[in-house]
Amino acid sequence: MNPAILPRALTMGLLACLAALSPARAQATLDKVSFGTNWVPEAEHGGFFQAVADGTYKRYGLDVTIVPGGPNDNNRMLLISGKLDFFMAANTLMSLDAVANKVPVVSVAAIFQKDPQVFLTHPESKITKLEELKPLTLFVSKEGITGYFQWLKSEYGFNEKNVRPYTFNPQPFIATAQSAMQGYVTSEPYAVEKAAQFKPGIILLADYGFNTYSTLIETRSELIDKKPDLVQRFVDASIIGWYNYLYGDNAPANALIKKLNPEMTDDLLAFSLAKMKEYGIVDSGDTLREGIGAMSDEREASFFDKMVRAGVVKPDIDFRKAYTLRFINKGVGLDLRPKN
């Protein structure tokens, strides 16, 4: 061999060895992260499962375990006690409640720009506006009464005299023509259509000013202080996961969801995804400029003021402690949104 070629050959060989070793090294240095959801696996969690299934979290140096929630689980308590690193909070009211009770958790991203909360109506009632629900029998859950219904009373003059308990069974609504039932736009319309063979009317509260964020990523203040880089990587990778779930090949996520939740069907997954897109649940408003997960001080203040007027939260709490904009509004993943 030409002596002049020898150093180059050794260099190339060394680079090849390093390339062969790098996946193992990367695997060995992944940071273990646990993320608790607030319900069983479903399309509404799709972006998180996508980031696991397609390797996005790993590319961000994370070994993420998703801990599903359910009717008998309290993953938020596991977050507070330090047994989970992140939690999927339902809405901003949970964050405000944490501040009121001096619980050191903070929202670091808002995956849903619109709360999926809706009222469903019978098609023959021809309801097209929120105010037209007032004379109807309204099936509302106990949590709904203490939350969004207080806003309906203060902002739109609703009255609890027409309210009946909603037990997450659509049959009373189906059997009562002059009624409306609470639900999520991503699930209950599907259940009603299957059970009653009609497409219900849909009134999305977010379109009438109920501007809470939903499906927030929440973590402990301690983790933000001690491991801000880990928090940033989890937020960024989750955002990428949501772009890929909405606009890319989401088969890996759906397969994982169905594996963990055998009762889930392809039809419901497709329905939920379609509704998230149709109503701009994830990607609308501020996210068009700032990227999925966006939040703003103005909107947080607006929702806080509405909840104060409704008597849901006390006016003396510092709502700014409920969230931080430090990890979002950076345009992460904007290039993944389809151009047309």
Rank of each mutant, 00 (worst) to 15 (best):
R309W: 00
Q197C: 08
P104V: 07
G183H: 08
I80F: 01
E155N: 05
A310I: 01
A180F: 07
P315Y: 02
S284C: 07
P228L: 00
T29L: 14
D31V: 15
Q182A: 11
K339W: 01
S187L: 12
G13H: 08
D207R: 04
R337I: 10
P116I: 13
G69C: 06
S272I: 04
I174L: 04
D249C: 10
G61P: 11
P135R: 03
A28S: 15
V282I: 15
A237R: 01
L223G: 09
T11D: 13
F87S: 00
E160F: 09
I217K: 05
V99D: 00
F158P: 06
N2D: 15
P189W: 15
P262M: 01
L246P: 02
F86H: 04
P123Q: 06
R337A: 11
E160W: 07
G82A: 12
F173W: 09
T137F: 00
M264G: 04
I240G: 10
G331E: 04
P172G: 05
V64N: 10
A89N: 00
S284W: 10
V106T: 06
V163A: 06
K199P: 06
R220I: 00
A89C: 00
Y148Q: 08
L96I: 00
D236W: 01
G147L: 02
P315S: 12
D115Y: 12
K330Y: 05
Y184W: 13
A20L: 12
T11Q: 13
R233C: 09
P165I: 03
E218G: 01
E143R: 09
G293F: 06
D267F: 04
T137A: 05
S238H: 02
I281S: 03
G47C: 06
L78E: 09
I240L: 15
G144W: 00
I5V: 15
L136K: 03
F139K: 09
K330P: 11
R337S: 05
L96G: 03
E263K: 11
T92S: 10
G46C: 09
I239S: 10
P3E: 07
P3F: 08
T215M: 13
A294Q: 05
G70A: 03
N91K: 05
S284H: 14
I257C: 03
V108N: 08
A175Q: 11
D335W: 08
L10F: 05
Q197W: 06
I174F: 06
P200F: 11
F210C: 09
